[in-house]
Design a protein around this nucleic acid. Structure first.
Length: 315
DNA sequence: AAACAGGTGCTAA
DNA sequence: TTAGCACCTGTT
């Protein structure tokens, strides 16, 4: 740790579970780190007191006013209502970083109320929600989210994470703490496919380049998409090569915080079939419509509790 | 070491 | 609409 590190305690107004939030596959840049290696400087909120060790710590990168800032995010127990953050002081002002972290972890979502509401919806949710209480849908940078999910097609989470990391190190801006931010659209668009492919993204190289070119060239306007009705935003995203229904829904949910969408991958399709549709085989489209119909404005959260449960439950 | 995991694009029905 | 196939990389 450099001497220019700052830490703060950030109140998220409701339960947060870093493991469930950061290891459920919605973001690809967070790594659990050995907590004993993180030295916590004086807290800006309590500068007179040294912090005790924090047992659960992740390292990642968030965008602060458009610039990447690496930070450690930790908590004292698996579910708390505050998190501890550490970053390099030269990267941005403390208040800007705190605001960005609150937004990243969706502090405006009343997660306590969301969990109670879904638990009361049906027995499946009553079982699934407590399994990952404190799971938060993240408010990620839309471009990084889009690019990451273009890489997710027919790919595994470790592979995706490796490619994202590689591209950040090659073409991204310094984020402090030895990390780099995800490259801007124009910086990726400037690379040829063979160069992009060195990230081991395979055939997805041209999809990623297409996304970068369309965003850099203004053909896809992410700021405009943020203002569109969800259906229209979805159609716009799907004009990118490699963006189908599932990727578009993930970007809408994790990058644009459209909580009413219900992304369906093979796991969710299986889960919907078994848990809600009597084991009848379902197309992704039917599973999606059923999820949106059942859970309405909370479909995104319902999908995440379901996903976390089916991915992590013992057989 | 052959089988498998995992969404989308494309062609054909 | 939908079925069937190809597409990279990595793991088992």
């Amino acid at each position: 740790m450099t001497s220019g590190a700052v830490s703060a305690t950030i109140d998220l107004d409701g339960p947060v579970n870093l493991r469930a939030s950061l290891e459920c596959g919605q973001a690809f840049r967070w790594r659990r780190v050995d907590a004993s290696t993180v030295r916590w400087p004086a807290d800006v909120d309590r500068p007179d007191k040294a912090l005790p060790g924090v047992p659960i710590v992740y390292k990642g990168v968030v965008q602060v006013k458009g610039l990447p800032v690496a930070l450690f995010a930790g908590q004292d127990a698996p579910v708390t209502s505050t998190i501890r953050a550490v970053w390099e002081s030269r990267m941005a002002s403390g208040s800007d970083i705190e605001a960005a972290v609150r937004r990243y972890f969706s502090s405006d979502d009343d997660v306590g109320a969301i969990e109670r509401s879904l638990r009361a919806t049906d027995p499946v949710m009553a079982d699934a929600v407590p399994f990952s209480s404190g799971l938060r849908l993240l408010n990620q940078d839309p471009w990084e989210c889009l690019a990451s999910y273009v890489l997710s097609i027919n790919n595994s989470i470790p592979n995706i994470a490796r490619s994202v990391e590689y591209l950040a190190r090659c073409f991204g801006a310094d984020a402090g703490l030895g990390e780099a931010g995800f490259p801007a659209p124009r910086d990726l668009a400037a690379q040829d496919c063979a160069t992009i492919r060195q990230s081991k993204c395979g055939f997805r190289d041209r999809n990623l380049k297409d996304a970068a070119e369309k965003v850099a060239g203004g053909e896809i306007d992410l700021a405009a998409i943020a203002q569109m009705p969800t259906g229209q935003a979805r159609e716009s995203l799907m004009t990118i090569r490699g963006v189908g229904p599932k990727v578009a829904d993930c970007v809408l949910l994790f990058g644009f915080h459209r909580l009413e969408v219900f992304p369906v991958d093979v796991w969710i399709a299986r889960a919907m079939s078994q848990l809600y549709l009597g084991g009848r085989p379902v197309t992704p489209r039917v599973a999606r419509e059923e999820g949106m119909r059942r859970f309405g404005a909370l479909a995104g959260y319902a999908q995440e509790y379901l996903f976390y449960k089916v991915r992590n439950a013992k057989p």
